[in-house]
Protein backbone atom coordinates (compact mmCIF):
# COMPACT_ATOMS: atom_id res chain seq x y z
CA UNK A 1 0.00 0.00 0.00
CA UNK A 2 2.14 2.81 -1.23
CA UNK A 3 0.05 5.55 0.34
CA UNK A 4 1.27 4.35 3.71
CA UNK A 5 4.83 5.01 2.67
CA UNK A 6 5.02 8.12 4.74
CA UNK A 7 7.33 11.00 4.10
CA UNK A 8 10.32 11.57 6.32
CA UNK A 9 8.46 14.02 8.58
CA UNK A 10 5.67 11.53 9.18
CA UNK A 11 7.77 9.28 11.34
CA UNK A 12 5.68 9.67 14.43
CA UNK A 13 2.58 8.54 12.68
CA UNK A 14 4.49 5.89 10.84
CA UNK A 15 5.66 4.49 14.14
CA UNK A 16 2.09 4.27 15.33
CA UNK A 17 0.87 2.57 12.22
CA UNK A 18 2.98 -0.49 11.56
CA UNK A 19 1.32 -2.94 9.27
CA UNK A 20 0.89 -5.35 12.18
CA UNK A 21 -1.52 -2.99 13.92
CA UNK A 22 -5.03 -2.18 12.84
CA UNK A 23 -6.87 1.11 12.80
CA UNK A 24 -10.03 3.04 12.44
CA UNK A 25 -10.44 6.67 11.64
CA UNK A 26 -11.93 9.19 13.94
CA UNK A 27 -12.53 12.85 13.69
CA UNK A 28 -10.67 13.79 16.77
CA UNK A 29 -12.64 15.73 19.31
CA UNK A 30 -10.39 18.19 21.06
CA UNK A 31 -11.60 19.81 24.22
CA UNK A 32 -14.57 21.88 25.15
CA UNK A 33 -16.84 23.37 22.56
CA UNK A 34 -15.77 21.05 19.82
CA UNK A 35 -18.22 19.13 17.74
CA UNK A 36 -19.21 15.55 17.60
CA UNK A 37 -16.84 13.10 16.15
CA UNK A 38 -18.18 11.06 13.35
CA UNK A 39 -19.24 8.20 15.56
CA UNK A 40 -19.44 5.46 13.02
CA UNK A 41 -15.87 5.92 11.87
CA UNK A 42 -14.14 4.98 15.08
CA UNK A 43 -14.52 1.29 14.75
CA UNK A 44 -13.49 -1.85 12.95
CA UNK A 45 -16.50 -1.74 10.66
CA UNK A 46 -15.98 -1.41 6.91
CA UNK A 47 -18.15 -0.46 3.99
CA UNK A 48 -18.05 -3.25 1.41
CA UNK A 49 -16.65 -2.71 -2.07
CA UNK A 50 -18.59 0.07 -3.85
CA UNK A 51 -20.92 0.63 -0.92
CA UNK A 52 -21.48 4.28 -0.13
CA UNK A 53 -22.79 5.35 3.25
CA UNK A 54 -23.80 8.96 3.82
CA UNK A 55 -25.83 10.83 6.35
CA UNK A 56 -26.09 13.40 9.06
CA UNK A 57 -25.26 13.03 12.72
CA UNK A 58 -26.71 15.54 15.14
CA UNK A 59 -24.98 16.16 18.46
CA UNK A 60 -25.80 18.27 21.47
CA UNK A 61 -23.14 18.73 24.10
CA UNK A 62 -23.58 20.66 27.33
CA UNK A 63 -21.47 21.55 30.33
CA UNK A 64 -21.91 23.73 33.37
CA UNK A 65 -18.81 22.75 35.31
CA UNK A 66 -15.40 22.93 33.74
CA UNK A 67 -11.82 22.52 34.82
CA UNK A 68 -9.85 25.75 35.17
CA UNK A 69 -6.51 23.98 34.99
CA UNK A 70 -7.24 21.22 37.48
CA UNK A 71 -9.74 23.24 39.53
CA UNK A 72 -13.33 22.23 38.85
CA UNK A 73 -15.74 25.16 38.88
CA UNK A 74 -18.83 26.73 37.39
CA UNK A 75 -18.92 30.25 35.91
CA UNK A 76 -21.89 32.60 36.31
CA UNK A 77 -20.85 34.45 33.15
CA UNK A 78 -21.26 31.29 31.07
CA UNK A 79 -23.97 29.33 32.88
CA UNK A 80 -24.39 26.26 30.75
CA UNK A 81 -22.49 26.12 27.50
CA UNK A 82 -24.33 24.25 24.77
CA UNK A 83 -22.63 23.14 21.59
CA UNK A 84 -24.79 21.65 18.88
CA UNK A 85 -23.51 20.25 15.66
CA UNK A 86 -24.77 18.59 12.52
CA UNK A 87 -22.07 16.55 10.84
CA UNK A 88 -22.39 15.52 7.21
CA UNK A 89 -20.48 12.35 6.76
CA UNK A 90 -19.78 9.82 4.11
CA UNK A 91 -17.85 6.57 3.84
CA UNK A 92 -17.14 4.61 0.71
CA UNK A 93 -15.80 1.14 0.17
CA UNK A 94 -12.96 1.51 -2.30
CA UNK A 95 -12.41 -2.16 -1.64
CA UNK A 96 -13.70 -4.45 1.06
CA UNK A 97 -10.70 -3.54 3.17
CA UNK A 98 -10.07 0.07 2.19
CA UNK A 99 -12.57 2.82 2.98
CA UNK A 100 -12.41 6.49 2.26
CA UNK A 101 -14.21 8.60 4.79
CA UNK A 102 -15.09 12.30 4.93
CA UNK A 103 -16.98 14.51 7.33
CA UNK A 104 -17.83 18.17 7.86
CA UNK A 105 -19.68 19.52 10.91
CA UNK A 106 -21.74 22.68 11.21
CA UNK A 107 -21.32 23.86 14.80
CA UNK A 108 -23.16 26.36 17.02
CA UNK A 109 -22.31 27.46 20.55
CA UNK A 110 -24.45 29.30 23.07
CA UNK A 111 -23.98 30.31 26.70
CA UNK A 112 -27.07 30.40 28.93
CA UNK A 113 -25.78 33.32 31.02
CA UNK A 114 -23.55 36.34 30.47
CA UNK A 115 -23.24 38.53 27.40
CA UNK A 116 -20.88 36.56 25.17
CA UNK A 117 -22.11 36.03 21.63
CA UNK A 118 -22.61 32.44 20.49
CA UNK A 119 -20.65 31.41 17.41
CA UNK A 120 -21.72 29.20 14.54
CA UNK A 121 -20.51 28.01 11.18
CA UNK A 122 -19.07 25.20 9.18
CA UNK A 123 -16.05 23.90 11.00
CA UNK A 124 -13.31 21.58 9.69
CA UNK A 125 -13.45 19.04 6.89
CA UNK A 126 -11.78 15.71 7.50
CA UNK A 127 -10.82 13.24 4.81
CA UNK A 128 -9.29 9.94 5.71
CA UNK A 129 -8.44 6.43 4.63
CA UNK A 130 -9.06 3.35 6.73
CA UNK A 131 -7.38 0.09 5.84
CA UNK A 132 -7.75 -3.38 7.25
CA UNK A 133 -4.21 -4.71 7.35
CA UNK A 134 -5.10 -8.23 8.46
CA UNK A 135 -8.01 -10.33 9.58
CA UNK A 136 -6.99 -13.73 10.96
CA UNK A 137 -8.74 -16.40 13.00
CA UNK A 138 -7.16 -16.20 16.42
CA UNK A 139 -8.82 -19.17 18.13
CA UNK A 140 -11.87 -21.14 17.25
CA UNK A 141 -13.90 -18.42 18.93
CA UNK A 142 -13.10 -15.34 16.86
CA UNK A 143 -11.04 -13.19 14.55
CA UNK A 144 -8.31 -10.69 15.17
CA UNK A 145 -8.31 -7.61 12.96
CA UNK A 146 -5.65 -4.98 12.55
CA UNK A 147 -6.65 -1.65 11.10
CA UNK A 148 -4.69 1.49 10.30
CA UNK A 149 -5.99 4.89 9.31
CA UNK A 150 -4.69 8.29 8.35
CA UNK A 151 -6.64 11.47 7.98
CA UNK A 152 -6.19 15.16 7.37
CA UNK A 153 -8.35 17.97 8.70
CA UNK A 154 -8.55 21.57 7.53
CA UNK A 155 -10.86 24.43 8.54
CA UNK A 156 -13.40 25.34 5.88
CA UNK A 157 -14.33 28.80 7.17
CA UNK A 158 -12.53 31.64 8.92
CA UNK A 159 -14.23 31.17 12.28
CA UNK A 160 -12.25 32.57 15.21
CA UNK A 161 -10.14 30.28 17.41
CA UNK A 162 -9.60 33.19 19.82
CA UNK A 163 -12.92 33.25 21.64
CA UNK A 164 -12.99 30.12 23.77
CA UNK A 165 -15.24 28.75 25.14
CA UNK A 166 -17.53 30.22 22.45
CA UNK A 167 -15.23 29.35 19.51
CA UNK A 168 -16.51 26.48 17.37
CA UNK A 169 -13.05 24.97 16.97
CA UNK A 170 -9.31 25.47 17.05
CA UNK A 171 -8.95 26.31 13.33
CA UNK A 172 -5.80 24.22 13.33
CA UNK A 173 -4.85 21.99 10.40
CA UNK A 174 -4.35 18.48 11.66
CA UNK A 175 -3.06 15.10 10.56
CA UNK A 176 -3.99 11.98 12.47
CA UNK A 177 -2.66 8.47 12.40
CA UNK A 178 -4.45 5.69 14.23
CA UNK A 179 -3.92 2.04 14.90
CA UNK A 180 -6.69 -0.28 16.08
CA UNK A 181 -6.63 -3.89 17.16
CA UNK A 182 -9.98 -5.63 17.29
CA UNK A 183 -10.96 -9.04 18.50
CA UNK A 184 -14.33 -10.14 17.11
CA UNK A 185 -15.98 -13.03 18.87
CA UNK A 186 -18.20 -15.43 16.96
CA UNK A 187 -20.96 -14.68 19.45
CA UNK A 188 -21.00 -11.02 18.25
CA UNK A 189 -19.06 -9.56 21.15
CA UNK A 190 -15.97 -7.57 20.31
CA UNK A 191 -13.22 -5.70 22.07
CA UNK A 192 -11.12 -2.96 20.48
CA UNK A 193 -8.06 -1.05 21.59
CA UNK A 194 -6.86 1.96 19.66
CA UNK A 195 -4.24 4.67 19.81
CA UNK A 196 -4.18 7.85 17.75
CA UNK A 197 -1.66 10.61 17.38
CA UNK A 198 -2.64 13.98 15.96
CA UNK A 199 -0.15 16.52 14.81
CA UNK A 200 -1.60 20.01 14.86
CA UNK A 201 -0.44 22.96 12.79
CA UNK A 202 0.05 26.40 14.29
CA UNK A 203 -2.89 28.75 14.64
CA UNK A 204 -2.88 32.42 13.68
CA UNK A 205 -4.73 34.96 15.80
CA UNK A 206 -5.93 38.44 14.89
CA UNK A 207 -3.84 39.97 17.69
CA UNK A 208 -0.10 40.51 17.99
CA UNK A 209 0.48 39.14 21.48
CA UNK A 210 -0.97 36.65 23.92
CA UNK A 211 -0.09 35.20 27.29
CA UNK A 212 -0.15 31.49 27.92
CA UNK A 213 1.93 28.84 29.64
CA UNK A 214 3.49 31.45 31.97
CA UNK A 215 4.84 33.67 29.28
CA UNK A 216 4.02 36.56 27.01
CA UNK A 217 4.26 35.72 23.32
CA UNK A 218 4.87 38.72 21.10
CA UNK A 219 3.54 37.13 17.94
CA UNK A 220 0.19 36.30 16.40
CA UNK A 221 1.17 32.67 15.85
CA UNK A 222 0.25 30.02 18.40
CA UNK A 223 2.13 26.75 18.61
CA UNK A 224 -0.39 23.96 19.01
CA UNK A 225 0.73 20.97 21.05
CA UNK A 226 0.06 17.56 19.53
CA UNK A 227 -2.65 15.32 20.89
CA UNK A 228 -2.96 11.62 21.58
CA UNK A 229 -6.14 9.65 22.01
CA UNK A 230 -6.47 6.14 23.31
CA UNK A 231 -9.67 4.17 23.49
CA UNK A 232 -10.78 0.83 24.85
CA UNK A 233 -14.08 -0.45 23.46
CA UNK A 234 -16.39 -3.31 24.34
CA UNK A 235 -19.35 -3.99 22.16
CA UNK A 236 -21.79 -6.21 20.34
CA UNK A 237 -22.30 -6.61 16.64
CA UNK A 238 -25.06 -8.68 15.08
CA UNK A 239 -28.77 -8.83 14.21
CA UNK A 240 -28.44 -5.42 12.52
CA UNK A 241 -27.02 -3.89 15.69
CA UNK A 242 -23.66 -2.29 16.27
CA UNK A 243 -23.29 -1.22 19.90
CA UNK A 244 -19.91 -0.15 21.26
CA UNK A 245 -19.14 1.18 24.74
CA UNK A 246 -15.84 3.05 24.88
CA UNK A 247 -13.57 4.65 27.39
CA UNK A 248 -11.71 7.40 25.59
CA UNK A 249 -8.75 9.32 26.90
CA UNK A 250 -7.37 12.44 25.25
CA UNK A 251 -3.98 13.85 26.21
CA UNK A 252 -2.59 17.12 24.90
CA UNK A 253 1.18 16.96 24.80
CA UNK A 254 1.88 20.47 26.06
CA UNK A 255 0.10 23.76 26.41
CA UNK A 256 -0.71 25.88 29.45
CA UNK A 257 -3.50 25.69 31.98
CA UNK A 258 -6.34 28.20 32.13
CA UNK A 259 -5.24 30.71 34.77
CA UNK A 260 -7.44 31.60 37.72
CA UNK A 261 -10.51 33.47 36.40
CA UNK A 262 -9.05 33.64 32.88
CA UNK A 263 -10.70 32.61 29.64
CA UNK A 264 -9.62 29.33 28.04
CA UNK A 265 -7.06 29.58 25.24
CA UNK A 266 -6.78 27.62 22.01
CA UNK A 267 -3.48 25.92 22.90
CA UNK A 268 -4.43 24.96 26.47
CA UNK A 269 -3.56 21.50 27.69
CA UNK A 270 -7.00 20.00 27.10
CA UNK A 271 -7.22 16.50 28.57
CA UNK A 272 -10.19 14.33 29.38
CA UNK A 273 -11.41 10.86 30.04
CA UNK A 274 -14.82 10.16 28.59
CA UNK A 275 -17.28 7.30 28.49
CA UNK A 276 -19.01 6.87 25.11
CA UNK A 277 -21.91 4.61 24.30
CA UNK A 278 -23.89 4.36 21.11
CA UNK A 279 -26.05 2.05 19.11
CA UNK A 280 -26.27 1.83 15.34
CA UNK A 281 -29.18 -0.10 13.97
CA UNK A 282 -29.83 -1.21 10.43
CA UNK A 283 -33.57 -0.87 9.90
CA UNK A 284 -34.87 -4.22 8.58
CA UNK A 285 -36.15 -4.31 5.00
CA UNK A 286 -35.20 -0.63 4.61
CA UNK A 287 -32.49 -1.32 2.01
CA UNK A 288 -29.71 0.45 3.89
CA UNK A 289 -31.22 2.84 6.39
CA UNK A 290 -29.07 3.10 9.49
CA UNK A 291 -30.16 4.82 12.70
CA UNK A 292 -27.71 5.93 15.33
CA UNK A 293 -28.29 6.96 18.92
CA UNK A 294 -25.67 7.61 21.53
CA UNK A 295 -24.35 9.57 24.41
CA UNK A 296 -21.17 10.34 26.23
CA UNK A 297 -20.05 11.74 29.53
CA UNK A 298 -16.74 13.37 30.40
CA UNK A 299 -15.59 11.83 33.68
CA UNK A 300 -12.48 13.82 34.45
CA UNK A 301 -10.64 16.56 32.61
CA UNK A 302 -8.29 19.48 32.53
CA UNK A 303 -9.06 22.77 30.78
CA UNK A 304 -12.26 21.31 29.31
CA UNK A 305 -15.91 21.29 30.25
CA UNK A 306 -17.47 18.30 31.97
CA UNK A 307 -19.59 17.69 28.95
CA UNK A 308 -22.60 15.46 28.55
CA UNK A 309 -23.38 14.64 24.95
CA UNK A 310 -26.27 13.09 23.10
CA UNK A 311 -26.04 12.01 19.49
CA UNK A 312 -28.59 10.95 16.91
CA UNK A 313 -27.87 10.12 13.31
CA UNK A 314 -29.48 8.94 10.13
CA UNK A 315 -27.32 7.22 7.56
CA UNK A 316 -28.13 5.70 4.20
CA UNK A 317 -26.01 2.96 2.69
CA UNK A 318 -26.21 1.46 -0.75
CA UNK A 319 -24.15 -0.10 -3.48
CA UNK A 320 -23.12 2.18 -6.31
Amino acid sequence: MNFFRLTRRDRTIGALAPSSVATALVVLSVGAGTPARAQTLDDADFMKFRVLCAGVVYTREQWTDYWEGTLKRANGNIGTLTTTSATYMTAYGVTDRLNIIASLPYVSTRASQGVLEGQSGHQDVTVGLKYRAFNTPLTTSGMLQGIVAISGTVPTTDYTPDFYPMSIGSSSERATGRGLLSFQGRNGLFVNGSMAYTRRGNVTLDRVSYYTNNQLYLTNEVQMPDVTESALTLGYQGHGLFAPLSLVQQRTLGGGDIRRQDMPFVSNRMNFTRLDAHVRYAVPRSRGVLLMLGGSQVLTGRNVGQATRVTAGLLLAGKL
Binding site: T7, R9, D10, I150, S151, R199, M224
Partner: peptide, 13 residues
Amino acid sequence: LSAAVLSCDKAIT
Protein backbone atom coordinates in the same frame (compact mmCIF):
# COMPACT_ATOMS: atom_id res chain seq x y z
CA LEU B 1 -3.54 17.17 2.99
CA SER B 2 -1.60 15.17 5.55
CA ALA B 3 1.79 16.17 4.25
CA ALA B 4 0.80 19.84 4.33
CA VAL B 5 0.07 19.61 8.05
CA LEU B 6 3.01 17.41 8.91
CA SER B 7 5.58 19.42 7.07
CA CYS B 8 4.76 22.73 8.72
CA ASP B 9 7.46 24.10 10.98
CA LYS B 10 5.90 24.66 14.38
CA ALA B 11 8.68 26.75 15.89
CA ILE B 12 7.62 30.29 16.72
CA THR B 13 9.52 33.32 17.94
